[in-house]
Structure formats: structure tokens, C-alpha cells
Write a protein that binds this DNA or RNA. Structure first.
Lengths: 193, 193
DNA sequence: TTCATTCTAGAACAATCGATACAGAATCGA
DNA sequence: TCGATTCTGTATCGATTGTTCTAGAATGAA
């Protein structure tokens, strides 16, 4: 029943994600998205409804692929503070010198002017916060933190640090200095009372 | 010689700044800017050249008024760590629940996809970094830091934290949690070895 | 009062925006 | 082989974009 899809959805979402990261939601035109995905406008609207629908799918792809992939690779369960440290450092190794920003950071800023918080941004920030909290509780430093209050607070502090790093990377800041900042933060986190 | 300006430049720049903060550079149309400034398109182009020119002037206004004003008010020379702490906390008291974001943060992200770093963004980040560094050296914690290396590194770490806070505020994060994160950061900064 | 100059307002510009309509190609069940 | 359905590409839509043009209003110097 019906013609078969010719495009590879993964590849299309990857291309769309790429340009949304680079130019933002408003800055990425349908024509840009045509070029980036290989699809023609008609197919895009048929498959995803509208621009917002394609963005939503691309953001989902980012969440699944880039975000969860990065967490799994650098800070899997059990990796503790060292995993988090490597997760942070990995932000500096992004290709294109940060011209592809973090979609979460970029969209938190771009959609922040609207009415309520963007649900997908909230979900992504939530995943990061939860991951930070979990790895923190694995550290001996947080052994006496039975109810996890301290881990919660530190997770929020780290989340802000994380987002700020991405802002500075995208702003063209010196990577060596940022790496030093990360090392300082985690060295101090390991020797905390 | 020639007709006198009828508009108040300060008020015009304030209105333009307001909407650039809220909707971003791309998201603010000339018609939006007409409404926000009270000027008609013709006058805008006569006075500022083009949209980028108006933005540049508005960013300058932000730098002079909001940024330098906030520093002077909360973290003037001599105010040390306590000044910085109040500077950070003041970010939480922004009106409109952060729907007017920090122009520096927003533009670092929005223009970050382009070729080089935006010079005005760089200058604003530089002012923040320098301010952090100066106040840090006033703290007894940094007494033994003769060459200022430690202050430099901490300033970068604080700058990332600062930008991250603004991302989370704009993302709709809970302010009480962010306040706690700020207090934690500075409490620990005060008791550092 | 001229006159050159500067500012304002409004209409209009080409270009681009997101989105839609439509025709043909491809598929599977009947 | 039909026919209902789904996908693709092209052409095009009205709306909006940033910008320019132009006519007129206001100024100070001559």
C-alpha cells in the first residue's frame, strides 16, 4: 500500500540536525534544509508536517544520538567523577571549532524568549542533570550524602558550568583555558570535604 | 544646518535592545523594531544605516548601561568575593522571568555559527572576565597568587558558570536551585586553600 | 526669504520566507 | 491489471523580510 520511502530517515535527520545546530531554528530556511537533507520541500512537508515537525524530529535525533551517545561513551554508569570529567573534556573536541553548537544550549537560548520552556529542551537538560547526579553519588566524596541533597545541588552547579562551557566554545573562547577550567573544577570536586 | 532629531537616542536604543534580547537578532524584524523604538523604517535606516547598525548601537547601549551598570552596582572595585556573589545573585532578579535574556549570552550563541567570533561579544566577555579576575585578587584566598595565574583560571571557570546560569534562567530552570548553586560556588570559593 | 542640508514618514522594492497544490512515479492488495 | 494509497518533485502561493525611494517638514546659514 503506497510508494516506498526513498530517503534514509537517519541521514535526513542528521543533515537537518547539522544545519539547525549551525544556524539555529530561525536561521535555517526550508531551502537550506532541502540542501542539507537531500529532500525536496514537498517531501519534507509530507514526511514531517512542517518546519517545526522536522526540527522536533531532528532534536529527537540529537537527544538519542549525540547526547545519549556521549553520555554512554564517556560517563556510563559506574564511571563516577572521572566519567564526568571526560564528558566535559569531550566538549572541547567538537569538530568545526564549535560552529556546530550544542542543540540544547542553542535552543534554550533561542526559544527562551517565548512563553513557556521548550519541553524537549527541558527533557535534555533533565537527562544531563540526572546523569550528573548519578555519577556524583558514585564518588567517595558523596558517601555521607544519604538523601542526595548535596548531589542535587552539585548537579545543578555542574549543569550551569556545562552550559556555560558550550556558550564560551561557541563564542570562540580559548580551548586550552577552558580545559584548565574543567580540570580545576573536577580536581576540586575530588578533594571536597 | 538641517532638521533636528526628534527622537531620544537613549530611548530608541533601549527599545531596540529590549526586543533584540527577547527575540534574538534574526527574530527581530524591522517592523518589530519600528514598534519597539517608535521610529519608522525610513528614520531607522537614515540614523543607523541598516539592521546590523541598529543592533550594533543597541549592543553598545547594553554594554554601557546594563553590563557596566550591573558591575558598578554589585561588584565595584574593592567589593571582592562578596561583590561577585551579589553580581551573580542579581542575575536571578531579572524581570520577565528571563524572557529578556543576556544579550551577550544570546549573541555568543546566535552568532557562534558564523566565521569568526563577534567582536562585541568578545569585548563583553572580556569585561566580565577582567572584572572577575580583579575581584578575585582582592580576596584573601588569592593572597599567595602573585602572578595571578590562579585568579585567571578561576575567572574563566566563573565566566563559564555565569554564562551557564543565564542559559538555565532563559531555559526556565528553577531559580531557587540556581540560587543555591551560586551560594555553594561562592561558599566554596571563600574557603578554598 | 532663500537655500542647502538633515530628518521623518510612507509607499514600494526585489528577494526570500514557510507552506500548499498538483501531477506523476512507485508500491501492494485485490 | 487495476485501483487505492503513499511518496517525490516542481511550481507556485501569499506573507514577510531587509532595504530603498521619494516627497515633504524642519532647521541654520547666507
Amino acid at each position: 500500500m503506497g510508494r516506498t520511502r526513498e530517503f534514509d530517515e537517519e541521514a535526513v535527520l542528521k543533515g537537518a540536525m547539522h544545519i539547525f545546530r549551525k544556524r539555529g531554528y530561525q536561521g535555517a530556511s526550508i531551502r537550506d534544509l532541502e540542501e542539507a537533507t537531500g529532500l525536496k520541500g514537498g517531501s519534507i512537508y509530507h514526511a514531517f508536517g512542517d518546519k517545526a515537525g522536522l526540527f522536533d524530529a531532528a532534536f529527537g535525533h540529537y537527544h538519542r544520538t549525540v547526547l545519549e551517545g556521549r553520555i554512554e561513551r564517556f560517563a556510563p554508569p559506574g564511571s563516577g567523577l572521572q566519567g564526568l570529567r571526560e564528558l566535559f573534556v569531550s566538549l572541547l573536541h567538537e569538530p568545526d571549532n564549535g560552529s556546530l553548537g550544542c542543540l540544547i544550549t542553542n535552543m534554550a537560548v533561542e526559544f527562551g524568549g517565548g512563553a513557556g520552556p521548550h519541553p524537549r529542551v527541558e527533557a535534555a537538560l533533565g537527562l544531563l542533570r540526572t546523569t550528573f547526579r548519578s555519577r556524583l553519588t558514585e564518588a567517595p566524596t558523596f558517601a555521607g550524602d544519604a538523601d542526595g541533597t548535596k548531589a542535587d545541588r552539585t548537579a545543578t552547579r555542574l549543569l550551569a558550568f556545562y552550559q556555560g562551557l558550550l556558550v564560551l566554545i561557541r563564542g570562540g573562547d580559548d580551548k586550552a583555558g577552558l580545559r584548565q577550567a574543567i580540570e580545576d573544577e573536577f580536581n576540586q570536586l575530588e578533594t571536597m570535604s
